[in-house]
Write a protein that binds this DNA or RNA. Structure first.
Lengths: 231, 231
DNA sequence: GAACGCCGTTAAGAATGCGTTAGGAATCCG
DNA sequence: CGGATTCCTAACGCATTCTTAACGGCGTTC
């Protein structure tokens, strides 16, 4: 399965150029949206909130700079201007009304895609919500290195956390003693299976409702441990 | 008199080009800083924290892409590459290791200045919007470089401020010792975890209500520190 | 039913990491 | 050049974390 990529809106009146860019963008993994006029471009921008806009300045119905100005009244979506006009005054004008980049035709698709990546990088720092691993009463935010049990934060020591996240990475599957020792203790010589018993007990105390009868942190006798996912 | 403008660091080995750009930048209202080699460029970046870096890829002592990579280990300062090489692979390579823009020589000063304005706009997420960070009794105005605790202004030394804002930028997340040392001390060789203990103690004394039991500036033993956000 | 293997639990000492203080070096600024 | 600020470094005590050992329960085997 593919995660739907960022959405790109192309505002361009020439059908030939649209076809060309559509292929480039879709094969680059982006969701594609197009408008043949400035009006349509504004409408689509409102409706779909694209992640990047590619804007041709030479539109039939309205001036590209006007479109930029109208757009910037309510949105800061990155705009990459693509234009046949390479005059410096054109570039400066577009950049100063809020465009983020200016590409002069003709340009290579490689460069275009690279500049789109830059634009997305700029926009990203706000939109990124941390992915969370959720199981029963537990919520684990791997980016924050934070473990919540029923919304309350639980403190785990470095080894506890590594053991827990190792089980999470292999959620549902049995992880052997040997593998756990390797991944958590990093192949240090003295690592013994005894450590696992001690730390699993600590984890159960901190995380399980009834530590003596664990619901998720299960033992596979003679083999290893596993984090049970379904119930 | 003029308010000191943003500071621009130029990394460029050709004296002629340096003279040309110096005039352009200073008459454009920017504070100007120059380095003739990659090493010097990195050093000046650490010491002066420029607002924008103009980087010529053709340096005598080190590859421009290496410089980008080293820089991006601890800083997100906008970098505009200026290069005589206009090949698409060069552009894509530079943009993908973290450059924000790529200008091919020769270029006009008007365009350069406009692209610098774009870069500054990105770095400062909107002068129209709050560059302010609020948490509990604290108010941080990142634009003014001002920290208020219950409305009273608290003076932080440069390193204290950098450490604090680094934690703010990763608010909620654990920032490892290594990462903090890189971002605050700029990857200088002698940086030791001891520094962090000393400066965290100072920050807590200046900012926390009960420095011995910090509410926000929390320690993650064996890992790093974190600015706890209430959620 | 005793012996054994495997696991969970607890606790205590060892090792490590952390907070704190303070003094001297380095730097900045007038 | 002198004073003030800021930074670096070392030392010490305390807290946390890791390691290790001892003991008891449970099931299986002989």
């Amino acid at each position: 399965m593919t995660i739907p990529g960022p959405q790109v809106l192309l505002v361009e009146d020439e059908p030939q150029m649209r076809r060309f860019l559509r292929v480039a963008l879709e094969s680059g993994g982006y969701r594609y949206l197009e408008a043949a006029s400035g009006q349509e471009g504004l409408t689509l921008a409102v409706q779909h909130r694209p992640d990047v806009i590619l804007l041709d300045l030479g539109l039939p119905d309205m001036d590209g700079l006007d479109l930029m100005t109208r757009l910037r009244e309510w949105s800061r979506v990155p705009v990459i201007v693509i234009s046949a006009r390479g005059q410096e005054t054109d570039k400066v004008g577009a950049l100063d009304v809020g465009a983020d980049d200016y590409l002069t035709k003709p340009f290579g698709t490689g460069e275009l895609l690279a500049r789109i990546r830059v634009a997305l990088r700029h926009a990203d720092p706000g939109t990124a919500e941390d992915p969370r691993f959720t199981l029963g009463r537990w919520q684990v935010d791997l980016a924050k290195r934070q473990v919540l049990v029923e919304g309350r934060e639980i403190h785990l020591t470095p080894l506890e956390y590594r053991l827990f996240t190792t089980l999470i990475r292999h959620a549902g599957k049995v992880v052997t003693h040997r593998q756990l020792l390797k991944e958590v203790w990093g192949g240090v010589a003295g690592a013994q299976p005894l450590y696992l018993r001690v730390y699993m007990a600590q984890l159960r105390h901190k995380l399980e409702e009834d530590p003596s009868r664990p619901r998720y942190l299960q033992t596979e006798p003679g083999v290893g441990y596993r984090l049970k996912t379904e119930d």
